[in-house]
Design a protein around this nucleic acid. Structure first.
Lengths: 207, 207
DNA sequence: TACATTTTCGACCGACAGTCAAGTATTTTT
DNA sequence: AAAAATACTTGACTGTCGGTCGAAAATGTA
């Protein structure tokens, strides 16, 4: 079946990316790892980038599934936002399957980071938009444009994860996260400390 | 003299980039335009990217010079921040020499955008840091960490300029700029409307 | 079996960043 | 002024890699 072969190929890329950055993996290598010829790769995908898209989209879909599996434990919008964030950055999911998103953000690879950001916005911001709207109904937060706010939040966090984490000193990173948590609070007019989970989680996982 | 030849080469690249995106310009082409052999390019630069760095750094230095030439007309920190921002995004400088920064942000080129962001942070955030500190002394704004705040502001604006402008609809862009101006106001605790110049300027120049 | 369609494959192509050896020009040394 | 050393110039060449292509094998269909 056509889907199976496609899966074979992006599974191979995913495995390779656990140890080698995308930019250093050739299509030839992906093909060999998948046990098919290079030509077949191009039979199932239009470009090398399209294979990567599949890997990243699946990672986000896994994180999102993890989120929906746990969301009922939180009833407030803020609690759910926290849950969503946790699902995205936690190191692994239940079955000890590691969360690629975290790993990939540590790679040194422009194309990859750009895709991570684009796909994060595409996959996460609709969910966050709904949560912001829920928060407005609850009265726990306020924003004029939930859709745009959600996109901004996801974009900025994504940029944070790649650019800031890898190259800068811990203290600077923590200061920036504090600023960002503060920005969210004041802008969404939530109660003080609502977004402290941001730097708590990141400190625990990364720093 | 060694500096002259280097200049010859990145001048050539700059001219080419007015019409062709960096990623579509080969080192061979740069060499031809500069009137030297390809080997010479690699005698004066270690890599193709290093030539680009020079072009972008010079663009920012020009914008910064423009800023310092005009800064005395504004005495308040907020006025100067506005001036700095204007200098960076204005379409051209006095002698009708166009501002490359604006042009380059419209290119569709990952590597280029990444460099623009990196060099913007490197060149602009020290200046903005000083202005934030001045604002704190004046009492016109408040921030716990001026250095980190400055970096965040420059980074976010830079991401805005590439990602948002090119791909999205006007209304969405304007909403995001409003949010961002609002974020700055609430976070720096400035008076209402202090950053309206952001979307005024951008609307005038781009949208 | 005969024919059509789908899938597989790796040799090949073109593009391009970067290297290198062999030269030429310029400066320094004697 | 000659010789030696150094600085600069060059384009053919290399290696790599994303993507193409056409021929063949596998599968489906009658």
């Amino acid at each position: 079946m056509k889907q199976d072969k496609r899966k074979l190929i992006y599974d191979a890329l995913e495995k390779l990316m656990l140890t080698v950055p995308f930019k250093d993996i050739s299509v030839e290598t992906i093909a060999r790892k998948a046990g098919v010829g290079k030509g077949s790769v191009y039979y199932y995908f239009d470009s090398k980038d399209e294979i990567l898209d599949n890997v990243i989209e699946r990672s986000y879909r896994r994180a999102i599934r993890e989120y929906f599996d746990n969301v009922q434990s939180e009833s407030t919008a803020l609690g759910r936002i926290k849950q969503l964030f946790r699902s995205v950055i936690k190191k692994d999911f239940g079955s000890s399957r590691q969360n690629l998103i975290v790993t990939l953000h540590l790679h040194d690879d422009l194309v990859l980071h750009n895709k991570l950001k684009a796909i994060a916005v595409q996959e996460l911001s609709p969910i966050l938009t709904v949560l912001l709207e829920q928060g407005m109904e609850e009265g726990s937060l306020k924003t004029e444009y939930p859709k745009e706010s959600a996109e901004i939040i996801v974009t900025v966090l994504s940029v944070f994860l790649d650019n800031t984490m890898t190259t800068q000193e811990k203290t600077s990173v923590m200061k920036k996260l504090k600023i960002f948590a503060n920005v969210l609070e004041t802008c969404l007019k939530t109660s003080k400390g609502s977004f402290d989970f941001l730097f708590d989680s990141i400190e625990a996982e990364y720093v």
